[in-house]
Simulated scan of single mutants.
Amino acid sequence: MGRIHPTAIVAKGAVIADDVEIGAYSIIGEHVTIGAGTIIGPHCVIDGHTTIGENNHFYRFCSIGGIPQDKKYAGESTRLEIGDGNTIREYVTINTGTVQDVGVTRVGDDNWIMAYVHIAHDCQVGNHTIIANSVQLAGHIHIGDWAILGGLSAVHQFVRIGAHAMVGGTSSVRQDIPPYVIGTGDPFRPSGINAEGLKRRGFTPASIKCIKDAYRLLYRRQLTVEQALEQIHQLGQDQEQRAAVQLFTTFLAQSNRGIVRP
């Protein structure tokens, strides 16, 4: 076993990689699996049917794998899965899933989850996201890769936030935010695309222009979503541009709550 503080409590059934560090007074439940290189800070509780990958860092006072805050929950064996390389700061809470959804809450790889964040049951968080201090995610929310959520924002249950989107601090998000879109407010209102973020991630100027054109068709031409989709499908001159546009169109076609509006 790795460095486990003598005051930590690790249940007999837990599966802990040899080099895992577990801090003082932390508690690890019997159905928990923790991968190599992961650090559990002091005063953390990790329980439930929880699988944690490699090289994660949980800071002090995290509560991971607790039962869902859902009155329909009746003790079913639902799960939490956390990938690799995540930074999870102080007082973060992440709950397991429910049988009313897929039964598992998931957090991907290389996410930066800041203090006091709550990730409720059945949320599906992608990779490389930044979720700032005190963001509150209700149940069944989907967050795409590279999305950024500003501090003190709250997201309504079943909302989907697309890849590369950026939510300004103290926002209230009640409908789906398409990929690439940036904005803020209560309620959240879109104001453009995350062009700077796309540049940093290697999107070409031509691909960014296609995304801007798609945004204008959706939000600036007074078209219905269906009318906008017909024209957006025609954008893109090469494979990279078409892939960028397809991420946008696929999201719109799958939106159930409706999309945010200016």
Rank of each mutant, 00 (worst) to 15 (best):
Thr51Phe: 03
His49Trp: 14
His31Trp: 10
Gly65Ser: 08
His31Leu: 05
Gly66Met: 05
Glu90Asn: 02
His49Pro: 00
Ser77Met: 10
His121Thr: 07
Ser63Asp: 08
Asp101Pro: 09
Trp112Met: 15
Ala115Thr: 15
Asp18Ile: 03
Val102Leu: 12
Tyr59Gln: 12
Thr33Lys: 14
Asp70Val: 06
Tyr59Glu: 13
Arg89Val: 01
His31Pro: 05
His49Cys: 06
Arg3Met: 08
Lys12Gln: 14
His49Thr: 08
Gly37Val: 06
Lys72Pro: 04
Asp110Trp: 09
Thr96Phe: 08
Ala24Trp: 11
Thr87Lys: 13
Thr50Met: 01
Tyr116Gly: 03
Val102Gln: 10
Val117Ala: 07
Val107Phe: 01
Ile39His: 13
Tyr59Val: 03
Ser63Ile: 05
His57Ala: 09
Ala11Val: 02
Asp18Ala: 02
Asp70Gly: 04
His5Pro: 02
Glu54Ile: 02
Val99Thr: 15
Asp70Met: 01
Ala36Asn: 07
Trp112Lys: 14
Pro68Asp: 05
Gly48Asp: 00
Gly37Ile: 01
Ile94Cys: 10
Arg3Asp: 15
Ile27His: 04
Gly65Tyr: 10
Ile113Gly: 02
Ile82His: 09
His43Glu: 11
Gly23Ile: 05
Ser63Val: 15
Phe61Lys: 05
Thr51Ser: 15
Glu81Arg: 14
Asp110Met: 11
Ile22Val: 13
Arg79Tyr: 13
Pro6Gly: 07
Asp19Leu: 01
Gly66Val: 09
Gly83Phe: 13
Thr93Gly: 08
Ile82Thr: 12
Glu54Pro: 02
Tyr25Ala: 02
Gly48Ser: 08
Phe61Thr: 14
Gly75Tyr: 07
Ile16Trp: 01
Arg106Cys: 03
Glu90Ala: 00
Val104Lys: 08
Pro6Arg: 15
Glu81Ile: 15
Glu81Ser: 13
Asp122Leu: 04
Ser77Phe: 08
Gly66Thr: 14
His118Tyr: 04
Arg89Met: 12
Val92Ile: 11
Gly13Phe: 00
Gly41Lys: 09
Glu90Arg: 02
His121Cys: 11
Arg60Ile: 04
Arg79Cys: 09
Thr105Gln: 00
Trp112Cys: 10
Val125Glu: 08
Ile52Asp: 01
Ser26Gln: 04
Thr51Gly: 04
Ile22Glu: 03
His121Gln: 02
Thr50Arg: 08
His43Leu: 11
Ile39Val: 15
Ala36Ile: 05
Val117Tyr: 10
Ala115Gly: 12
Ser77His: 15
Thr7Ile: 10
Gln124Ile: 14
Ile119Leu: 07
Ser77Gly: 04
Asp84Tyr: 07
Thr87Val: 15
Ile9Gly: 00
Val92Met: 07
Tyr59Cys: 05
Val10Arg: 00
Ile22Cys: 04
Gln69Ser: 05
Tyr116Lys: 03
Ala24Thr: 13
Asn111Gly: 12
Ile16Gln: 01
Thr96Ala: 09
Thr33Leu: 06
Gly75Thr: 00
Ile119Ala: 03
